[in-house]
Design a protein around this nucleic acid. Structure first.
Length: 426
RNA sequence: GGAGAGAUGGCUGAGUGGUUUAAGGCGCCAGUUUUGAAAACUGGAGAUCGGUUCGCCGAUUCAAGGGUUCGAAUCCCUUUCUCUCCGCCA
């Protein structure tokens, strides 16, 4: 949701954003509806005002005088009923359409049509150039007995898997390291609800628009959805609240399974653990003051935390500036982190760091009292800290050895009972 | 799953059709008093939207939505949530 005063001030800017973000919204048409809606509302309110005024007089009257007034009011009540229904109709349309309006990206965001036009920013780590033939994570998974996709598909359909043995232990180790890292950095760890209502999906701006991506509970529990990320419940945590300025920034780390239908991704990344229906993720969520500098500081902090974890896991990665066409409706600034995946001979997206300014907070109605006692919408941000099993791909592939074993990065060993290497079963 | 009771401002809590413009209390803010504080006294204060001559004016808001009525916190219907008891259960 955006500030409609701002939209009325500079509609061209919003229309251009729609083009840049690839969103099909006609701003001029919305403004026309907006004017109509406000006119209808003014009409309704003035009728209501006169009704309220007369209602106060009626109990003081009696006899014929009272009868006359009542008859008169009956006519007004009918007109009001009509006015109410047109207002309701307009309001419904207005509400629906304003949820589709995008926020304007920061000036430094590159304009582009899709992820092919994202801009490389910087890289960390050495891309391995081994003297032996590299195995991909699927082969490593088989030889080291880390996961079983065939049986996953047997039990739960495409894009399903079992993690087992050291595969499961490795994932658990990654999550533990990740949670410890954020705990030490002062983040509040959270295990949130995995099933949420429509308001939470709308408030975090996944709905409307992302319905096809979410698992929707059946008629018996209609109106509830499986989360695709803990950002949804965690960012909604303070919905409808007014916080004190001193409490900000709020730093949260949500840990949860994530469920995604991956509709529209048929045939894409079908092999292995890259794109699956269910995965685990530690997600960083921040609520801060409505201040551009503060928001950017927090953005860099979130990005820095993710980079630190990548470095602890000794994984080569790069950071990209995401272009307008690859941004969401509400995001104003976004960086992806991509890990080097030898089997793809390419970097693959593992993290997504987003600044929303007040876009989500307006939908969620999360505010704070500023220094002047005024209620102001918070700014929100979020970034992946780590998601698994996708992270197992670079982890296994980058750390493999000529004999088919995989070396466990030092930082993970304490979480795997000191184990240093995963060796083939044979 | 069965039976019952509820949802009122920051909190507590009255209010069963019209001076309720939501009482009273607690907490909060300001002033008086005080060396300062406390206490006492006096006054003030919710949120959202629209309009505005920037003084204000109007509408909405008593869980949510609909209905009855000239008029609804109050009556009716639906939904959501909370609590108590019973059943089931990791």
């Amino acid at each position: 949701m955006i500030d409609l005063h701002d939209l009325r001030e500079r509609p061209e800017e919003y229309q251009r954003t729609c083009q840049n973000k690839g969103i099909k919204v006609d701003v001029a048409a919305f403004l026309k509806l907006d004017a109509e809606y406000r006119k209808s509302r003014a009409d309704f309110e003035s009728m209501r005002a006169s009704q309220n005024a007369v209602s106060k007089e009626i109990p003081k009257l009696s006899g014929a005088e009272k009868e006359a007034k009542l008859a008169e009011m009956k006519g007004l009540a009918e007109k009001l009923k009509e006015a109410t229904s047109t207002l309701k109709e307009l309001e419904e349309q207005w509400q629906k359409q304003q949820l589709l309006l995008p926020s304007i990206p920061l000036p430094q965001v590159p304009v582009g049509k899709d992820d092919s036009e994202n801009v490389f920013s910087r890289a960390w780590g050495e891309v391995p150039k081994p003297s032996f033939d590299l195995r991909d994570h699927i082969r490593l998974g088989k030889e080291l007995d880390l996961f079983d996709v065939e049986r996953g598909v047997k039990i739960a359909g495409t894009r399903s898997y079992f993690l087992k043995g050291d595969g499961m232990r490795l994932q658990h180790a990654v999550m533990s390291l990740a949670l410890d890292l954020l705990h030490k950095s002062g983040y509040t760890l959270m295990d949130p609800p995995h099933i949420v209502n429509w308001n939470a999906m709308m408030g975090t701006s996944y709905f409307p628009g992302g319905e096809e991506m979410a698992y929707h509970l059946d008629q018996r529990d209609d109106g509830y959805y499986l989360i695709g990320t803990s950002e949804v419940p965690v960012a909604s945590f303070h919905a409808e609240e007014i916080l004190a300025q001193e409490e900000l920034p709020k730093r949260y780390a949500g840990y949860s399974p994530c469920y995604r239908r991956e509709a529209g991704a048929y045939g894409k990344d079908t092999a292995g653990l890259y794109r699956v229906h269910q995965f685990y993720k530690v997600e960083q969520v921040v609520l801060c003051r409505a201040d551009a500098d503060e928001s950017m500081r927090m953005h860099q902090e979130l990005l820095g935390n993710a980079e630190k974890l990548m470095q602890l896991m000794e994984l080569p990665y790069r950071v990209v500036e995401v272009c307008t066409g690859d941004m969401g409706q509400g995001q104003v600034y976004k960086n992806d982190i991509e890990a080097w995946m030898p089997s793809r001979k390419a970097y693959g997206e593992t993290h997504s760091c987003s600044s929303f300014y007040d876009f989500q907070a307006r939908r969620l109605n999360t505010r704070y009292k500023d220094g002047n006692g005024k209620n102001v919408f918070c700014y929100t941000l979020n970034n992946t800290l780590v998601a698994s099993p996708r992270i197992l791909i670079p982890l296994l592939e980058n750390h493999q050895n000529a004999d088919g074993s995989v070396t466990i990065p030092k930082a993970l060993r304490p979480y795997m009972a000191g184990q240093e290497v995963i060796v083939p079963k044979s």
